[in-house]
């Protein structure tokens, strides 16, 4: 399944790397439910969010600057940061 990371730039603590925002990739696996770090970081009672491993190609992330276009980056992204692509 192909998904895209929200291109959002809120202040405060988030675990979505800047270089992956707005980028699309394939779901590698759903790891399960984990505490939402955006609440956990402020000691608020955290809601659970699915944590999903996404596989991005270097060409998707870095465009023409990619070192080797078909190499990949895999990262864990919380489901509330993902939308269908």
């Amino acid at each position: 399944m192909k998904v895209r990371v929200h291109n959002n730039w809120p202040p405060g603590h988030i675990r979505t790397p800047a270089y992956l925002r707005g980028k699309a990739g394939e779901v590698e696996r759903d790891i399960g439910l984990f505490n939402n770090p955006e609440q956990n970081a402020y000691r608020l009672p955290p809601q659970k969010s699915h944590l999903v491993r996404i596989r991005f190609t270097m060409s998707e992330v870095w465009g023409d600057a990619a070192e080797t276009p078909d190499d990949v980056i895999e990262a864990e992204i919380y489901a509330h940061w993902l939308e269908p692509a």
Binding site: N35, P37, N40, Y42
Partner: peptide, 11 residues
């Protein structure tokens, strides 16, 4: 505390 609260203050 927790890992996220550690990181939040570091940031």
């Amino acid at each position: 505390m927790n890992t996220d609260s550690l990181r939040r203050v570091l940031e």
